[in-house]
Design a protein around this nucleic acid. Structure first.
Lengths: 236, 236
DNA sequence: AAGTGGTCTAGACCACGTC
DNA sequence: ACGTGGTCTAGACCACTTT
C-alpha cells in the first residue's frame, strides 16, 4: 500500500556526504580502497541512486574520491592536492583591511609588446594598449601594475582616462571576461619595481601574472608586483 | 503513439552549459542580468528542469552565475575571482620536469614549538616532532622544508627514518588527511634559508605555509621555501 | 503569500573502460 | 562483453527569500 508519493527523505545528499566523509576520516575506507558501488550504497541508505551519485560526485569534485566507470569509486591516495583561492580585487582587498585605496596611472601608450607578451596575443591584432599604474593603501605603494590590453576586443578603452576607476575594474564592468590563467612567483625587485613600490632594490616581491579571455579572445594580460608582505591564502 | 521511453536527449547538461556560456560570452546576457528561470529554459531547450538545473549549478559553482531562491539567477558582475590550483607533490613535480628527485633529512627532534606554531596546534597535545629536510632536483637544492607533526595523532611516525620516502609522502600514506589550508608569500632568504638552498642571503624565495587536518585534528604544519624560480600556475 | 531554486525518486538508457 | 558510473526524465515536495 503506502500512497506512493514523494516523501521528504531524511537522507539528503548532504547527509550522505557527511557520512561518507566521516568514514574516510575514521579510516573505515582508507586511501586507495574501493568503496561500495552506487546501487549498494543506495540500498544501504535507503535512497535513490541519484542521491548517492550526487554525494559521491561532490566528493569527487573536491578530490576526496576518484571515480571511473566500470572500475568503481576509490578513496584518493593523495587527497589534499587541489585548492580554491579567491583572487582579490585590489581595491576591495585594501578596503577590507581598513585602509584607504587610491591609484594612479603612471604611463599609457600604444606599443608593440615584447616577444614574451606578444606570443600570448593573437598574431594579427592591432598594437595593444600598454598601461602601468600604482595601487596604494593609505597612500603607500601597494601594487605595481603593468598591463597590456587588446584594443581590437575593447576599443572604447581608448576613450577612458581611469581617474576614478582602476583599469581592472573598468574592464570587469565593460568587457566580458570568461576565463583566466594565473601564475605566482617570487622575484627580487628590479630598480623600476623598487622605485615605484618604495622598497630596496632586491627586496622580495610577490608577482602575479594574469591573463584573461572572453571565450577564445585574449582581453588583457597583467603583471602585478606586490611588496614583500603580500600573502595569499586558501582552504582546501 | 510514441513509446514513451526515455530517449537519449540531444540536450545534455553539458550542451546547455555550452550554450549558456556562449550567451554570456556574446553578451546576450550581461553581468548583473537576470536570466530566464529554470522552467523557462527547460521549455526553450525542450528538456527536463533537472537538466537545466545541472547546467546552471555547474556555472554557479564556477562563479559565472549567482543563484538565489525566489530572486532568480544572475550573471555575476565580477566573474573571474576564483581559481583552482594543484598543489604539487614535490617529488612528482621534480620528476615531471625530467629531473632526478632526492631528499635528505637535516634534523629531527621532539621540541616545543614557537608561539606562532603552537597556536595552530591544540593546547594539550604532546611535544610535537620537528623535522627539517631538503628536497633536491638533479642533486641541486629545490625546496627547504620545516615541519611540525602532531605525535598524538600519528605516533608511529617516531619509528620511521625517512631514508626512502619524504615525510610528506609518508604522511599521505599513513595518516588520514581530509582538509588543509595554504598560504603563499614572497620572502628574502634569511641566512639559514640561503645556506641550505644555495642562494645568496636576500634572494627572493617563494614560501608556502601549509597545515593539514584529519577532520578537526591538526596533523601537520609545514613551511616550504623554494628558490626564486618557483612558479605556480592555474586556470580559472 | 507566493515565487524560484534545491532536491528526491524510480526508472531508463548510455558510454566508458576493464576484463 | 559486461559492469559501473553518467545522465536524462517527469513529477513531486521542500526551503529560502522577497514581496
Amino acid at each position: 500500500m503506502s500512497p506512493k508519493v514523494n516523501q521528504r527523505s531524511l537522507h539528503t545528499w548532504q547527509s550522505l556526504y557527511d557520512v561518507i566523509s566521516q568514514r574516510i576520516i575514521d579510516g573505515v575506507w582508507k586511501p586507495g580502497d574501493l568503496i561500495p558501488k552506487e546501487v549498494e550504497l543506495a540500498t544501504e541508505f535507503g535512497c535513490a541512486r541519484a542521491t548517492v551519485n550526487r554525494a559521491l560526485r561532490q566528493l569527487a569534485n573536491e578530490g576526496s574520491l576518484e571515480r571511473r566507470r566500470k572500475a568503481g569509486t576509490r578513496v584518493t591516495r593523495y587527497p589534499v592536492r587541489k585548492a580554491t583561492l579567491d583572487i582579490p580585487i585590489i581595491r576591495l582587498d585594501v578596503q577590507q583591511n581598513g585602509m584607504v585605496y587610491s591609484q594612479t596611472i603612471l604611463n599609457r601608450e600604444r606599443k608593440i609588446p615584447p616577444k614574451s607578451i606578444k606570443s600570448i596575443f593573437d598574431g594579427n591584432i592591432a598594437k595593444p594598449l600598454y598601461i602601468t599604474s600604482l595601487h596604494r593603501a593609505d597612500g603607500a605603494p601597494y601594487a605595481y601594475e603593468k598591463r597590456w590590453v587588446n584594443i581590437d576586443a575593447i576599443p572604447k578603452i581608448l576613450n577612458e582616462n581611469f581617474s576614478d576607476i582602476s583599469v581592472n575594474e573598468w574592464l570587469v564592468e565593460n568587457a566580458l571576461l570568461t576565463k583566466g590563467e594565473i601564475t605566482f612567483s617570487a622575484k627580487n625587485a628590479m630598480k623600476m619595481d623598487a622605485d615605484i613600490l618604495g622598497v630596496e632594490v632586491g627586496a622580495a616581491i610577490f608577482v602575479i601574472q594574469r591573463s584573461t579571455w572572453n571565450g577564445p579572445t585574449l582581453i588583457t594580460t597583467v603583471r602585478l608586483a606586490y611588496n614583500q608582505d603580500f600573502k595569499m591564502s586558501t582552504y582546501i
